[in-house]
Nucleic acid binder design. Sequence first.
DNA 1: GCCGTTTTCGGCCCGACTGTTTTCAGTCG
Length: 584
Amino acid sequence: MRRKRWRCATWRKENRGPTVDNHEVAQRFEELADLLEFKGENAFKIRAYRRVARVLDDLTEDVAELAAAGTLRNLPGVGEATAKKINEYLETGKITRLEQAKKGVPPGIFDVLRIQGVGPKRAALLYKEIGVDGVDALEKAAQAHHVRDLPGMGEKSEENILRGIRLTRAGAERMLLSVALAAANAVVDELKSQRGLVSRITPAGSLRRRRESIGDVDILACGRDPAKIIQAFTHGSHVSDVLVAGDTKASVVVTRGPQVDLRVVEPKQFGAALQYFTGSKAHNIKLRGIAKQKKMKINEYGLFKGRKVVASAEEEDIYRALGMEPMPPELREDRGEIEAAIEGRLPKLVEHKDIKGDFHVHSSHSDGKHSISEMADAAKDAGYKFIVITDHSKSLRIANGLTEQRVRKQMKEIAALNRKLRGIRVLCGIEVDIKSDGTLDLPDGLLAELDVVIAAIHSAFKQSREKIMARMAVAAKNPHVDIIAHPTGRLIGQRDEYDVDVPELIRMAAATKTALEINAHPERLDLNDIYCRMAKEHGVKVAIGTDAHRAAGLDLMGLGVAVARRGWLAKRDVLNTNATPRFK
DNA sequence: GCCGTTTTCGGCCCGACTGTTTTCAGTCG
């Protein structure tokens, strides 16, 4: 699959909370942390700022509302000084401490810090000694061999810096979850295919946690001959560049693909390593703190009390030994899962096998490739009890949207098909367009006759928040609309959300008993994990739809389930788990 | 800068790899 180019401004933090403002405030704290790091200030202070940034990004409430209510300090990691800074930013658009820190630091330093192999110490050295104030200046200095003369630097460091610049420019960007999964599977399959090489091998990291976009791919393996595994990995058919290769770990860049890190561990330590390399970093840091309280130590080799191994072979053993329930990788983001695990109140997450049907499927009647009958066969093969055919409505001309007449014709075809089909039921639906003037594209009388109505915005993305929300209100309040599809309209790495107030939409959905969709298409994954959790907290049901335009598209359900799991959703929160779904 | 079964000061996660060093600092995850 082709690598996506990321055009929107917010690609670095795809897990945005309800409003842009949270993310915006978070970014200020990231900047502050970068600057203080560059200046060599107290590392713990820097970590504290980064923690604040992450907490703000993960927030399911509006930071401005918390500030107004005076409850900022209830947030973990936010103390008096930070609360003051947040208030200052909300009121004035500036943070005095940040402005001070910026003084005398050229803005290009932020980019220099993002080059692989250049950290705060080297960035400061380069700036002070030879005036490197940006990536271009750094490249020139390295090419002119001015870098190797600096203390602690040499020929190799210079080469590595140039390679770091190349890698960053070539696209050290994040990739879609689906792309990373494919790359990881290719590497894993190649290593597995070599007889007797690996006894266990599995992706770890953010891929295993199923984040919606992935930076590097992490893979964990064990086998009799670690050196041979590293050798096979670095000489794999997909490798274009070897970054590091040691006894137990190696990093490569895959041709037209991501950086892949492999770690080789002892079989008896596989569980500890899997836990460690699955992360997230924040989750692990909290876990380490808990181990420390219990006078234990945790690292990638195991959980230790003094020299004694308390747990190491399986992940579950480590969590249990720390006094908590083991938890699925999708929850490990330090968003309250550790506290829940200690108190024994982790949700039992929805699983792929619970899914009985797909709510969002297109056919050749509009812009799908396959007939209704072919889609039904594919759904039956997937083990489903139902699918909902939801072709586009007429105003979406580019997608050959259905007129009222054609909808009626489709209803007849589906009725006839259902008389023949065994073991699967085709429900008659529509993806009705919420037009830019705030009306629905088909009359209520017709919508009332359909089994399932999903409504979606496909036009006028640039409208004001008021207009977008007015359109959403029309859809949610319509008694025939069952689901609002891809509610924010974002395309990961390509297009930002339209100006939808998601917390307000969720309140609307709750009040009108309208479900919200997780669109499982890899570029959408919309709602995202944070919004899903917010929906659940408000009692709003979620419907997963693959938006399949061909039979193979039904396979994307796994990505939708992953988002649901990341959003803490249980079986009862997801409408697809009911073989005969009921609506308004 | 935050935080408290170590409570208002003194901690704050931990190890691998690299390149430059004569024993370790810097970077990364």
